[in-house]
């Protein structure tokens, strides 16, 4: 690990001021950042410890939603009684990720900012446009079975690894951030950047901008499912995952909010898929049509071609489970 200056932030104003400095990173849980710093994939010159800031706690908002402090751990969020009752897809997604030890450390804000697990991003002996802009992409034509099929560019086919963020995207979450110019809220829909020619830029956060909370709107109701397909049944990243909030009324789908993990450079959501489902009676043919829309632009890169049919089947399984008559 390269040497760095360690700064323990005493208040938010100091954190965003120090955080805006060059080659500076915030640290909270540190489970991903320190891993990458050990490998020198990331080598900040300064790290600003935000763990002593008042950014914890889960509060109810005026409109029946939740405001989740950025430092709330994945464990605490998954176990929160309100989340389990009103936003179960979020609990399920959190519990499907990482291990007990990691969930105890990993925070809400940090989880959103996780870096990809693309092998070539981790391997400093290989070119990677995300790690070293302009160096090339070894994943293209390399080992890419875990990588993306949607929203990629010629420069990068990395996936976003989070489970939590997939559920949050299905739930229309918003991210509250604070910078030197004040605070703002960003819809999770607008939070992540497409890789394009700049895969090293992953979010719209400005230097020094600090995630302070994630806001969930009032409970979405419906049936909530998080289904994760992975190489082993615990403690593994998603090959494909689906977060679903689906409601059926009078035999027709009245609501469908769907987000996908393991497919793209960000937790993936495609409103056209949802529009095709709403107002229709659930059927295998309908689910297949939804998958056609979702996968119109899907592109395999050899090793990950299997994700295209796997996504189709996983979506059908989730929609079938979500719409079957209550037993």
């Amino acid at each position: 690990m390269r040497a760095f200056d360690y700064i323990r932030a005493g208040d938010r104003a100091q954190a965003v001021r120090d955080g805006a400095g060059p080659e500076t990173r915030f640290i909270a849980g540190g489970t991903n950042l320190l891993d990458l710093m050990k490998l020198e994939v990331m080598a900040p010159e300064r790290i600003v410890d935000i763990t002593r800031l008042e950014l914890g706690g889960i509060e109810e908002t005026a409109d029946g939603g939740l405001r989740i402090g950025a430092l709330v751990t994945n464990s605490d969020l998954a176990a929160d009684a309100r989340v389990r009752r009103g936003w179960p897809v979020l609990s399920r997604a959190l519990l499907a990720g990482a291990s007990g030890q990691l969930r105890n450390k990993a925070t809400t804000g940090g989880n959103l900012l996780q870096r990809t697990r693309c092998y070539y991003f981790y391997d400093r002996g290989e070119p990677c446009n995300k790690r070293e802009p302009g160096s090339g992409c070894a994943a293209m034509g390399g080992m890419n079975r875990i990588l993306a099929i949607l929203g990629t560019s010629e420069q990068c086919i990395a996936t976003h690894p989070s489970d939590m963020a997939v559920a949050m995207r299905a739930l229309d979450a918003r991210v509250e951030v604070e910078g030197q110019d004040g605070t703002r809220e960003i819809a999770l829909d607008d939070f992540y950047c497409s890789p394009g020619d700049t895969p090293h830029i992953e979010t719209v956060l400005a230097p020094g901008e600090l995630i302070t909370a994630v806001i969930l709107p009032a409970p979405a109701g419906g049936r909530q499912i998080y289904r994760k397909v992975r190489d082993r049944s615990s403690y593994a990243f998603a090959l494909v995952s689906v977060a679903a909030v689906v409601e059926v009324e009078n035999g027709k789908i009245a609501k469908a909010q769907l987000a996908f993990g393991g497919l793209g450079p960000m937790p993936w959501r495609d409103r056209a898929v949802e529009e095709a489902l709403v107002g229709e009676a659930p059927s295998p043919a309908l689910f297949d049509r939804a998958a056609d829309i979702l996968l119109t632009e899907a592109k395999g890169h050899g090793g990950n071609d299997f994700k295209i049919p796997l996504t189709r089947r996983t979506l059908a399984a989730v929609l079938s489970q979500a719409t079957e008559a209550a037993a």
């Binding site: 640290i27 489970t31 450390k105």
Partner: peptide
Amino acid sequence: GRRINSCLTLACM
């Protein structure tokens, strides 16, 4: 009171 991976955290924190 919580189990964590001591390899993935800084002592000074």
